[in-house]
Simulated scan of single mutants.
Amino acid sequence: MADTLSLAKSELVRQASKAMQQHLSSPEWSLREKLALTCRILFADGHDSGLAGQITARAEKPGTYYTQRLGLGFDEITSSNLLEVNEDLEVLSGEGMANPANRFHSWIYRARADVNCIVHTHPMHICALSMLERPLKISHMDACMLYEDIAFLKDWPGVPVGNSEGELIAAAIKDKRAILLGHHGLVMACRSVEEACVMAVQAERAAKLQILAESAGTIQDIDPELGREAHDWILQEKRSQATFAYFARRTQRRGYGGGEDPLS
């Protein structure tokens, strides 16, 4: 006789979360390796836009972070060609220069002690919504990791190389993990590299779903309580790590975008 068919949902959720802690595992990549893998994963998922976009992670020394070198595309990033920079974007280790638009990352890191990774990209469907000055509508279970967790900045401040743009974006995102920037793109500000990568992939998929759905009719709201429940379920740390590991394996099978091994 089955033992769980009479259990409350809350208990089943608790048991499933406990089981994930025991059974879900992922490789022990270094921080630099995870950052390089994120660049390749997002390249493969349509987040590439030439040299635009930055992906950063807090480094070991306070006030410093890792980022890619300006002049390299996401598909060319490896753990060995990443730069370590300070808040002024001065290079502490590595060769070359950081993207000057990284400045707004410094402002977010200063404002949010909980943020350890920032992803900023220009994926096509997110950018289409940004051109329409339309927020991302969360109305599907898969996208609920973003439910009540993505802000919207309608007014474009221009190229984000100044301090005023950094202050504006850091203030607009508040305590959320994501923000859609009008006439610009996507920013994720998350607890880990894995979480930021997975949420960025899902945000672009949600934008594509939104455009498809709106072409056929009016998107209906989901129940807020259920949206919050799904948000917390999907964003469990072990689940994010396992999803990231799957994305890395999938990208490896595709050949890392044709470039060098990102772990080199």
Rank of each mutant, 00 (worst) to 15 (best):
R103A: 11
F104P: 02
R103S: 12
P123H: 01
H105P: 07
T121E: 04
I118A: 03
P100C: 14
N99L: 08
H122S: 09
C117T: 10
S106R: 04
A101L: 00
V91M: 05
C117Q: 10
N99S: 14
R112C: 08
A111V: 06
R103N: 12
V115I: 13
R103C: 08
A113N: 11
G96L: 07
A113P: 12
T121I: 06
R103M: 14
S93V: 02
M97L: 13
T121H: 05
N102C: 15
N99Y: 09
N102L: 07
V115N: 03
T121Y: 03
A98S: 12
I108L: 15
S106E: 07
G96H: 08
H122C: 09
I118W: 01
T121F: 05
M124P: 09
W107G: 00
R112H: 15
C117L: 12
I108H: 08
A111F: 05
E95R: 13
A98L: 07
S106Y: 05
A98K: 06
S106V: 02
V91A: 00
A111K: 15
W107L: 10
P100G: 11
A101P: 01
F104T: 02
H122M: 13
F104R: 01
A98F: 04
Y109T: 03
H120R: 10
E95K: 14
F104C: 06
I118D: 03
A111Y: 03
V115T: 11
A111R: 14
P123W: 03
H105F: 05
L92Y: 06
L92W: 07
E95F: 11
Y109C: 02
M124C: 11
S93H: 14
V91C: 00
T121Q: 05
A101N: 04
F104S: 03
R110D: 11
S93D: 13
R112M: 10
M124H: 13
Y109W: 08
I118S: 02
H105G: 01
A98I: 08
I108A: 04
V91Q: 01
N102K: 00
H120T: 10
A111T: 06
N116A: 12
A113G: 10
G94A: 08
Y109S: 06
A98D: 05
R112P: 08
R110F: 04
Y109L: 11
Y109R: 05
N116V: 07
P100D: 12
S106G: 10
M124L: 15
D114T: 09
A113F: 13
N102F: 10
F104V: 03
P123M: 02
V91Y: 01
M97S: 14
G96P: 00
M97Q: 14
R103L: 15
N99M: 07
G94N: 05
I108T: 10
H120W: 11
R103P: 07
A111E: 14
M124Q: 14
A113T: 13
P100Q: 12
G96T: 04
